[in-house]
Design a binder for these strands. Structure first.
Lengths: 340, 340
DNA sequence: CTGTTAGCGCGTTCAA
DNA sequence: TTGAACGCGCTAACAG
């Protein structure tokens, strides 16, 4: 069964396609009332819906936005996605989803595929591989296509893109300062891949807080993970010999892995070692020992990104940089350090 | 900056657009070798990529599939989505994502939006509201549009759609039989919304297992939840007075809520009450008391759905019904019942 | 008030 | 071996 087109309607109504188009697009001030009625009735009856490909081809507007994220099965990203989708849908935009799997080549490929689809704009969370020249490669591709873009989780003032993120440096600074206030001095840190600035910012916040409190920075206390559960777990065997009294994990999933490994070693959290996370995903509240962590408003960040993008699309607002303030959630995985 | 079109290439090469089109579509057997070279070179140099709107308009193929799910922030669904996206991307298909928020009207709206976008096919997980006549409404809309569709989590032989699901009846049957083997007789059940067949199937499996073992079915032991953490939590206060010795939760999230409420009441899992889940999402392994549960291969189910759909699109395979076998994961939240 | 004409970017006859 | 012409479904000048 083939869809009804304006041509069908025009035939049925005995008018030209122009008239139909005019009526159906609300530009019918100059069309006779009876024709207006007639056409609308027929359109309704024949269940007419405009073909968006055809409209897009002409108007160069598709009401479609692209989303590239590293991994939709990661709850932090899926929460962001929800925020984006909800907002976009409310504004009658469709969302094309692409996973980059933290792979730069796939990211580039996705950007190209999305451009080919004539998306109106893009929201992207860069892959972990996309930093330095690779990040620039992605960005310049977007610039060449002059594609309205909002970047999440990557503050970037120099290029002409809107960004949405939290203040990462401040976030981990807050976390470390809190741990220091608990008398901790040997604070280990399990980081994400130390390429993207978001991640190095977090490490820098850690370092700054130590400096501020005149605690020496020890490289041996740093473990570079990859944001996955397993890497948090693995970190423990290399960190433990350094005898940390607290461990800051730069996302919650790694904190879960670390806690698991600690438990297997018979080490109690928080009595023996304090552990902090970063993100505050839902499950952190319901852990055996609810996780102290830095909260990022994932849903809101997604929503805000969508809002910025659609604003840009509809009224060409200049790039904005939204920085959310991190919020520290003190739960039960952290505790005052008491030398034994 | 505007994209380069075949016209641009034709001009640059001094040939007609037909020639360009022929070459770029691999139908260049009849084109002179030098022109072939020339055109390909120019296309490369000018960074030509076909406009998919235009191609779609002609070919009626967009290489785009739609996905409608209740909620992308639910890890069970996001895992399915990952499976779909990975497979689709590998086959050069794009994915348009829509959340129905378990709302039938939104589901219908999404279907229409997706059809307007000329998607080639659809994968859908019905909203909790879409059962009975509402389910039929969604299905008949798809049929009228003759849109190739795969339905996940809803076995449905009568309509002409492919389906992917697990054997839900058997799944909960297995769970209950396992609990019975542990000497439990007062087994409560926290269900999902008892509209969609998937959910009533699960309840039926529970009932069948009781019957098989001559254990009376008691309505007071059933609580109808909504698959959310909070409803599992809420269930406990109404179920507890019935003194169950085991509780089967028809998804993991509700099991988490139930366990939380139990803990707050000073009731130990599994020593006082056994709890089983359903889904086996990642977090179930890392709970304080790792959750015994029925495992659904979410990623694989998504992948399989995408595979069925693309098979249908490329070679018009008849509808298939894939039923995965549930696997019981015995962890530590269940234990032999010992009367005290 | 309404129809004719001309494309949007591309694939595909049909002639030449 | 190639090009002109047509059309996918629709919008937008421009006439009338």
């Amino acid at each position: 069964m083939t869809r009804t087109t304006i041509k069908d309607i025009a035939n049925a109504a005995g008018v030209s396609v122009t008239t139909v188009s005019l009526v159906l697009n609300g530009k019918s001030n100059r069309i006779s009332a009876k024709n207006r009625r007639l056409i609308k009735d027929i359109a309704q009856k024949m269940n007419y819906r405009p073909n968006k490909l055809a409209v897009g081809l002409i108007k160069k507007i598709t009401n479609t936005i692209g989303l590239i994220i590293p991994d939709i099965s990661n709850v932090f990203f899926s929460e962001i996605t929800k925020g984006i989708e909800d907002f976009a849908h409310k504004k009658s935009y469709n969302l094309i989803l692409c996973n980059s799997n933290d792979n730069h080549a796939l990211e580039i490929e996705s950007i190209n595929m999305l451009i080919d689809q004539s998306i109106d704009g893009l929201i992207i969370i860069m892959s972990a591989e996309s930093y330095g020249t690779k990040e620039q490669a992605s960005l310049s591709l977007l610039k060449k296509a002059s594609l309205p873009t909002v970047i999440i989780d990557c503050f970037n003032e120099t290029d002409n893109f809107s960004t949405v993120s939290i203040n990462n440096t401040k976030a981990s600074y807050m976390a470390v300062e809190y741990l220091i206030s608990l008398n901790h001095k040997r604070i280990a840190c399990i980081t994400g891949p130390l390429g993207p600035q978001t991640n190095t910012d977090r490490l820098n916040g850690y370092i700054k807080a130590l400096q501020k409190h005149a605690i020496p920075y020890r490289k041996e206390l740093i473990y570079e993970g990859n944001f996955r559960y397993q890497s948090g777990y693995n970190a423990i065997s290399v960190l433990l010999p350094q005898r940390p009294t607290a461990i800051l994990c730069l996302n919650d999933m790694m904190a879960y892995g670390a806690i698991k490994a600690l438990k297997e070693q018979g080490i109690n959290v928080p009595n023996d070692i304090s552990v902090m996370g970063f993100d505050d995903i839902f499950f952190s509240q319901i852990l055996e020992v609810p996780l102290s962590t830095i909260s990022q408003p994932a849903y809101t960040m997604g929503k805000k990104a969508a809002e910025l993008l659609l604003d840009d699309l509809t009224e060409h607002t200049p790039p904005k940089h939204i920085i959310f303030e991190p919020v520290i959630k003190i739960r039960q995985s952290t505790k005052k350090y008491q030398p034994k």
